[in-house]
Write a protein that binds this DNA or RNA. Structure first.
Length: 484
RNA sequence: GGCGCAUUCGUCUAGUGGUUUAGGACGCUGGCCUCUCACGCCGGUAACACGGGUUCGAAUCCCGUAUGCGCUACCA
């Protein structure tokens, strides 16, 4: 790893599913890596054993793969700086912490949760920052060892200096500074021996050669602690870029209570990965031009950290829907077939004998009329079942007094045709209309009602051709009978 | 409460001191196209949080206020 090779990471904790905010963070990391010829690393932050969810890692990887964000290194893809699961790196953290303790930059703390609580309450009552009072910093090595030998539980804390200003450059926010007096003596190693995020993330980022830390804004406030750790460990700090948060419509942080937040939810609803990726890319970033539609490769080309916004962005589903429609139109019928078939099989359409070939022919006709692939078959059941009822408003508007007679005449004419194409259907209809000295509309609208039961949809002659002569004639006759 | 970050149409955003009657997109909406619906095209709707400065001139710079969000755990 040379020092100027860009290396970034996405470091989720395996709590069950990939959050759309996480997807956006992963995406920006991915884009930045690809744009700069760097590596995109996936690291699993599983240091909280109480929150571990079975199968969550597989889930995360699956969601990333679905979105098209392949990682260069990570679980199952060794890159020489693994393992990529923090739970497998415990010795590494312990080594570094031993060094910190030796240097007086960290210390063991034996305080009970009860005492911690008191200290915190007292500090808060006095109107100050609730933080640890460094009580155990005074312990000598002998005293600490004695407590350890006696079997007392302990944590390791960061020894934060007083009266210092800690600042760092953020690629999206500029210079950010904090007074060290507002920083708590952060726990580095928990009493169960696992590291906290703060320690593990600094050590791993360094050891994995991460050059740019691109993560959510929720980490901005703890970054000074990380900066301090880099200094204490004698390391240069990486570049930081804190991304604005994704918000609910009421501008609170995007949460489960106000809608779907998991990538798999959107996947299940039928959103295309291309659309979701395009959408979240635009939540907090623009190229500066008026472009809205992007494929992943085009995002790679256009992306820069400098153009990431500072303010949070509301996750606005209407625009996602529009982008889904746009991306849908770019899909080939063959690519859409599996989703269309699945929705068709699951629908309450009675005729389930449609071939792949037939479904593929329907797709282009319906593509511009739906938001989701699943709607292609289900919004047009007439491609499978003959209508059992006719749209009331449509009938009122289009089924005039002469409709039954005209429709029968049309059926008679069609019956004589041999394997008619859409052009044949149209030609004959216009001939019949002309013979009766009527506008084509007097035939087209009733024929649509008869064939589909609804007043809207694809071009009539496209529909008729797909239905086939026998079915068309039968439906025309049935409607003439039913509607009179 | 403390600390930090943010604040342009309902939403996503362009805008980095004059080119701005603040531009685009989604949504909503009027019209055109058309066998219908949809697509497409043309048009409309709607914003610089507030108050002070700095400046010949501010959405753009500074200060304050308000509001929102984040952090404030042996969670990440």
């Amino acid at each position: 790893m040379s020092r100027d090779t860009v290396r970034v990471r996405f470091a989720p904790s395996p709590t069950g599913y990939l959050h759309v905010g996480g997807l956006r963070t992963a995406l920006y990391n991915y884009l930045f890596a690809k744009k700069n010829g760097g590596a995109f690393v996936l690291r699993i932050e599983d240091t909280d054993r109480s929150r571990y969810v079975e199968g969550a890692v597989e889930n995360l990887i699956d969601a990333l793969r679905w979105a098209g964000l392949d990682y260069d290194e990570g679980p199952g893809k060794e890159g020489g700086v693994g393992p990529y699961l923090q739970s497998e790196r415990l010795e590494i953290y312990n080594e570094r912490v031993a060094q910190l303790i030796e240097d007086g930059k960290a210390y063991r703390c034996f305080c009970t949760p009860e005492r911690l609580d008191e200290v915190r309450k007292k500090a808060q009552a006095e109107g100050g920052q609730p933080k640890y009072d460094k009580h155990c910093l005074a312990l000598s090595e002998e005293e600490a060892n004695a407590k350890l030998d006696a079997g007392e539980q302990c944590v390791v804390r960061l020894n934060v200096p007083e009266g210092e200003t800690i600042s760092f450059e953020d690629r999206v926010r500029g210079t950010v500074s904090f007074s060290s007096d507002t920083l708590d003596d952060q726990v580095l190693i928990k009493s169960d021996g696992y590291p906290t995020y703060h320690l593990a993330n600094v050590v791993d980022d360094r050891l994995m050669g991460i050059t740019h830390v691109i993560r959510g804004e929720e980490w901005l406030s703890s970054t000074p602690k990380h900066v301090l750790l880099y200094q204490y460990l004698g390391w240069d700090v990486p570049e930081f870029a804190h991304l604005p948060l994704l918000l609910n419509p009421d501008r609170s942080k995007l949460s489960k209570r106000q809608g779907d937040v998991a990538v798999e939810d959107y996947r299940a609803k039928g959103y295309l990965p291309e659309a979701l990726v395009n959408f979240v890319a635009l939540l907090g970033w623009t190229a500066g031009d008026d472009r809205e539609f992007y494929e992943l490769e085009e995002l790679v080309e256009a992306f820069t950290l400098e153009r990431v916004n500072k303010a949070g962005a509301v996750f606005n589903v209407e625009k996602l829907d529009w982008l889904n429609e746009e991306h849908l139109k770019k899909q080939s019928p063959e690519a859409l077939l599996p989703a269309v078939r699945a929705a068709y099989e699951a629908s309450d359409i009675k005729n389930k004998s449609a071939s792949d070939d037939y479904l593929v022919k329907i797709i282009p006709l319906m593509l511009e009329r739906v938001t989701f692939p699943s709607e292609i078959a289900t919004t047009a059941p007439y491609f499978f079942d003959a209508p059992t009822e006719y749209d009331e408003k449509g009938v009122k508007k289009r089924w005039k007094d002469d409709a039954a007679e005209n429709t029968r005449a049309l059926a008679d004419a069609y019956e004589k045709l041999d394997a008619p194409t859409k052009d044949d259907y149209e030609r004959v209809l216009r001939e019949v209309a002309e013979k009766k000295d009527l506008g084509a509309g007097r035939f087209i609208h009733p024929a649509r009602l008869a064939a589909t039961g609804v007043p809207g949809g694809p071009g009539l002659f496209d529909v008729l051709e797909l239905l086939g002569k026998g079915e068309v004639v039968a439906r025309l006759r049935a409607a003439a009978e039913r509607l009179g």
